[in-house]
C-alpha cells in the first residue's frame, strides 16, 4: 500500500530524514514514534505531498507519489500537528468548504458532513463557530475534515498533542472507530503509551532513521531479554545492595531512597532464591516484583535522547 524507499530530506546542511525505508500494508495502523525533531513530521509531509524529497521515493499503491502528487491527493487524508481554523465560519460550513476543495458534488455533501460530524461526536456543534471550539473539538473537527473525501490512507501527525486526558480518550475512541473501518493509518507521537494499544506496527525513528520496526510485541521481545526487578523496602538499604552486588546475574543496580531497581538475567528459580536470601537477612521488604516492560521504556532504551 505505502512504500518509502531510501528517503532523504535535507535542509541545507541539516539532514532531517536520512535514508529512511518503510513499508506499510493496507489496514495497518502504523505508529511513528520518536523524539521531537526526529523527522516524523518531515516524513509525513513528504508522504502527504507537501514537501519535496532530496532523494528517495514514496510509492502509494505502486504510484510514485513524489512524481505524481496530484494523482494521490484523493487517496490521502492529512492532519498536521499544528493547524488553524478560519474565523467567522461555522462547523458545517468549514466541512462544506473542504468538501468543495475535494470537488465533492453539492448534493452529496450534507450526508457526508453529518456522518463525519457524528463520527467525531461534533453533531451538536454543527452551527457553532469553528474558532469558538475547544482544542480537543478542533482536533476532532480536523480529523473529520481529513476524512471528507473518504481517503484510503490517513496521516495523523500528533493527533493527541496538547489535549487534556478526557480529550485524549475521546480522540482515541474516534481512532478506534477508524481502525474498525479498515483505514490505513499512519499516526505519529512522541508519547508512546498513547499509541501502544492502537497500533498494529510501530516504527521508532531517531535522527531521521528508523531504529526499530515491527509489531509492538516483536519490539518488546527483542528489547526486554533482561527482566527488571523492583524492590521497595523500609530499611537496611546498604545490606540489600551488598547482597545484590554479590549476585552474578544482576546488573545496573539503581538505588532510590526506599527503592532499588536492577536488571536480572536469571530464571524464576534464581529469582525465588534471591528473595529467600534477602528475607534471610531480615531486610524489611514492602514489595518485590518484576517490572513490566512498557513502550515508554523501550523508547527510552532505543533512542538516545534526542530531545
Amino acid at each position: 500500500m505505502l512504500e518509502i524507499k531510501n528517503l532523504v530530506k535535507r535542509y541545507g546542511k541539516f539532514t532531517a530524514v536520512n535514508n529512511l525505508s518503510l513499508s506499510i500494508n493496507e489496514g495497518e495502523i502504523f505508529g511513528f514514534v520518536g523524539p521531537n525533531g526526529a523527522g516524523k513530521t518531515t516524513t509525513m509531509k513528504i508522504v502527504a505531498g507537501l514537501l519535496k524529497t532530496s532523494s528517495g521515493k514514496v510509492f502509494i499503491n505502486g504510484i510514485d507519489a513524489t512524481a505524481h502528487p496530484s494523482k494521490l491527493r484523493e487517496k490521502i487524508g492529512y492532519m498536521p500537528d499544528f493547524f488553524g481554523v478560519y474565523d467567522n465560519l461555522k462547523v458545517d460550513e468549514y466541512m462544506d468548504f473542504y468538501a468543495g476543495m475535494y470537488k465533492i458534488p453539492y448534493k452529496e455533501r450534507p450526508t457526508i458532513i453529518n456522518n463525519l460530524l457524528e463520527l467525531v461526536d461534533l453533531s451538536y456543534k454543527k452551527d457553532a463557530y469553528v474558532d469558538s471550539l475547544s482544542r480537543g473539538m478542533k482536533q476532532r473537527l480536523c480529523l473529520a475534515r481529513s476524512l471528507i473525501h473518504n481517503p484510503d490512507i490517513l496521516i495523523l501527525d500528533e493527533p493527541a498533542s496538547g489535549l487534556d486526558p478526557r480529550a485524549r480518550v475521546e480522540m482515541k475512541e474516534v481512532l478506534k472507530q477508524l481502525k474498525n473501518l479498515g483505514k490505513t493509518i499512519i499516526i505519529s507521537s512522541h508519547i508512546l503509551p498513547e499509541l501502544a494499544e492502537l497500533c498494529t506496527v510501530i516504527g521508532i525513528i531517531e535522527n531521521g532513521q528508523i531504529v526499530a520496526h515491527g509489531s509492538v510485541n516483536q519490539i518488546m521481545q527483542k528489547l526486554t531479554q533482561k527482566r527488571v526487578i523492583k524492590i521497595r523496602l523500609l530499611d537496611k538499604m546498604e545490606e540489600l545492595i551488598t547482597i545484590l552486588k554479590e549476585q552474578p546475574d544482576i546488573h545496573d543496580i539503581f538505588e532510590k531512597t526506599d527503592e532499588v531497581e536492577f536488571d536480572f538475567e536469571g530464571d524464576d528459580n534464581r529469582l525465588a532464591l534471591l528473595l529467600k536470601q534477602i528475607m534471610g537477612k531480615e531486610i524489611p521488604i514492602v514489595s518485590f516484583y518484576e517490572k513490566e516492560g512498557n513502550l515508554e521504556d523501550i523508547f527510552m532504551k532505543i533512542t538516545k535522547g534526542g530531545e
Binding site: 507537501l50 496530484s70 499544528f82 481554523v85 478560519y86 476543495m101
Partner: peptide, 14 residues
Amino acid sequence: RERQTLDLLLITRV
C-alpha cells in the same frame, strides 16, 4: 500561512 491553514488547502484537489 500564519493561521496554519495553507497546507490544508494545498493538499486538496483544487
